[in-house]
Design a binder for these strands. Structure first.
Lengths: 215, 215
DNA sequence: TTGAGTATACTTGTCAGACAATTTGAATGT
DNA sequence: ACATTCAAATTGTCTGACAAGTATACTCAA
């Protein structure tokens, strides 16, 4: 039997590494991302660097106009509200449908448990299980395109969070509690309740993040 | 005052024309789309053609593996169900929120009127106002990212429809009637009702399209 | 005749180098 | 101080080329 092996093209490798640097905050909107700079730092040709940049532009992680250098997308309060409202649209409808079938996604349950476990080890470790909780909900819908859309949103959310260092914005206990309420509502088949709780949950996070980014 | 003018790059021009050919069905999944072929037919260099193809791959209108020619995405019954379910997720939640504020989008009203007007002039002219009705609903949400997501779905929907020629699949009177019911529910503030009617509306369209594509 | 292996053509991935077009900021002159 | 011009930096696009992979046709043996 042939072991499934993954061969990445050079463009993909550069794209992935660049995306990592963006999402971890190692690359901020302060500095411009020129094609030549990327090409030299990775030791690839300029067309390759160009392709990688354009891929990330397609993911809305970079922005650039014609004949201008690319920059990491700066996400102001308005963008944050747009993103979180989009999340609310997607997730609340998903919760409604999960609730009608009383299907509680195990991934979300596990992620929520991890939130409590990570409470003691610094606030930054809290971001990851939080994101996992929500993606767990979305993946439970079993819809490929919805999942794709949501993941692109999550990239931007993560981008926001790293820009704010995301310290002290999240309270592990209250987050865990709200998540539990959502899951309980789903288990009880309370579609309306689940959607309502989620809306409040996202609204508070949204406003805190928007405020933190609104210097 | 400077009149806003749009200068399109060569890649964008090729991309737009290619997309048009795909969406009108002039380019089907029967023939392969090679970089060289695109380059020669448009009189551009191969890297330019390559960039255009990769853009369309990013829009899910073309698919291709490494070292293989691109093809127009063939959308089988499973894809159609995935797309329409995604539509249902997005649109039903939008309707709920529109209903709570009793906001009836004018664009949607106009588009629905056009459906009746176009009833006599052939079934194909019916597709366009139908799509406009639904995009009108989505744009009324005023969320940039939701609109972006939805437009990518609509590209694929249009792709499905042209592949089936979309004749006799749609009945103008019943579509108009269902749309009217939806708008009435929104105007009445009946969130649950609007979402329910839309779900049925999309479900029947989905199954008809899936059946037509399930040869 | 059939099957397996090889050889060949086609296509894409990547690179190098170059020039045009545009933006941007600085130098210049009034 | 302001407007103009100039130069540097950056991107858009092209040509040409080679490597690498895929798919098809072909040859030769059983």
């Amino acid at each position: 039997m042939t072991r499934p092996i993954a061969t990445k093209t050079v463009v993909d490798a550069v794209t992935d590494d660049l995306r990592g640097r963006i999402l971890t905050g190692s690359l901020t909107s302060a500095e411009a991302v020129t094609e030549l700079e990327i090409a030299t730092t990775y030791g690839v040709a300029r067309p390759t660097a160009k392709a990688a940049i354009e891929k990330l532009v397609g993911e809305n992680l970079l922005v650039r106009g014609t004949h201008k250098s690319a920059r990491v997308a700066r996400l102001g309060p308005d963008s944050v509200r747009d993103i979180y409202l989009a999340r609310a649209y997607l997730e609340s409808e998903i919760l409604r449908r999960l609730a009608t079938s009383r299907a509680v996604p195990e991934d979300a349950v596990r992620a929520n448990a991890d939130i409590l476990a990570a409470a003691s080890s610094g606030d930054l470790a809290l971001v990851e299980p939080d994101l996992r909780f929500h993606t767990g909900l979305v993946e439970a819908a079993g819809n490929e395109r919805i999942a794709r859309m949501y993941s692109s949103l999550m990239s931007e959310v993560r981008l926001c969070m790293t820009r704010v260092q995301s310290l002290h914005l999240l309270n592990s206990e209250s987050i865990h509690a709200e998540h539990s309420l959502i899951l309980d509502a789903v288990a009880a088949g309370d579609a309306e309740g689940a959607a309502r709780i989620l809306d409040r949950h996202l609204a508070t996070a949204r406003e805190r993040l928007a405020e933190a980014l609104g210097e």
